[in-house]
Amino acid sequence: MGLLRAALSGARDTVSRVAPPQSQRALTDAALAHWSDTEAPRWAVESHWRSGLGELWSSVGPRQLALTRSLLASLGRDVPEGRVLEWGCGGGANAVSFAPLCREYVGVDISQHSLDECRDQVLTHTGREIRTVLVDPATPETVVAELGPGTIDLVVCFYVFELLPSSRSATQVLRAVHDLLAADGAAVIQIKYDDGTWTGAARRRDYHRHVAHMTTFKIHEFWAICEQQGLRPHVLTLVPEDELDTRYAYVLLTRSGG
Results as ranks from 00 to 15, higher is better:
Ala145Ser: 08
Glu146Ile: 11
Val144Ser: 05
Phe158Ile: 10
Ile130Phe: 08
Glu117Tyr: 04
Tyr159Lys: 06
Glu146Arg: 13
His113Val: 15
Val143Tyr: 02
Cys118Ser: 10
Gly127Asn: 12
Gly150Glu: 06
Thr124Met: 15
Gly185Cys: 05
Ser114Arg: 11
Phe161Lys: 02
Glu141Asn: 08
Cys118Trp: 06
Pro137Arg: 09
Pro149Asn: 04
Ile110Leu: 15
Leu115Pro: 02
Arg131Gln: 13
Ala145Trp: 04
Val144Asp: 00
Ile130Tyr: 07
Arg119Thr: 13
Ala176Thr: 05
Ser167Met: 15
Pro165Leu: 13
Arg128Trp: 10
Ala183Trp: 06
Ile189Lys: 01
Leu164His: 01
Asp179Thr: 01
Asp194Cys: 11
Val143Lys: 09
Glu129His: 12
Thr126Ser: 14
Asp136Thr: 07
Ser111Ile: 13
Val177Ala: 07
Cys157Gln: 04
Gln172Ile: 08
Arg168Met: 09
Gln121Pro: 11
His113Pro: 15
Thr142Arg: 13
Cys118Asn: 14
Thr139Arg: 15
Leu180Gly: 03
Val143Pro: 06
Ile189Ala: 02
Asp116Gln: 14
Ala182Asn: 00
Ala183Lys: 08
His113Met: 15
Gly150Gln: 04
Ala183Ser: 06
Thr132Ile: 13
Asp184Ser: 11
Ala187Met: 12
Tyr193Phe: 15
Leu163Asn: 00
Gly127Thr: 11
Tyr159His: 08
Thr124Glu: 15
Phe158Tyr: 08
Leu154Arg: 03
Asp179His: 04
Pro149His: 02
Ser169His: 09
Gln172Asp: 14
Tyr159Gly: 01
His125Pro: 02
Val173Leu: 14
Val144Ile: 12
Gly148Phe: 03
Pro137Gly: 01
Arg119Ala: 14
Glu146Asp: 07
Leu154Thr: 01
Asp179Pro: 01
Arg119Val: 06
Glu129Gly: 09
Gln121Arg: 14
Val155Glu: 05
Leu147Ile: 11
His113Trp: 13
Asp153Gly: 05
Thr171Gln: 14
Asp184Tyr: 05
Gly150Asn: 06
Glu146Lys: 12
Phe161Thr: 07
Cys157Ile: 03
Lys192Arg: 15
Pro165Thr: 00
Ala182His: 02
Ala183Gly: 00
Leu115Tyr: 07
Glu162Val: 14
Thr171Ile: 14
Ser111Cys: 13
Asp120Ala: 14
Arg131Lys: 13
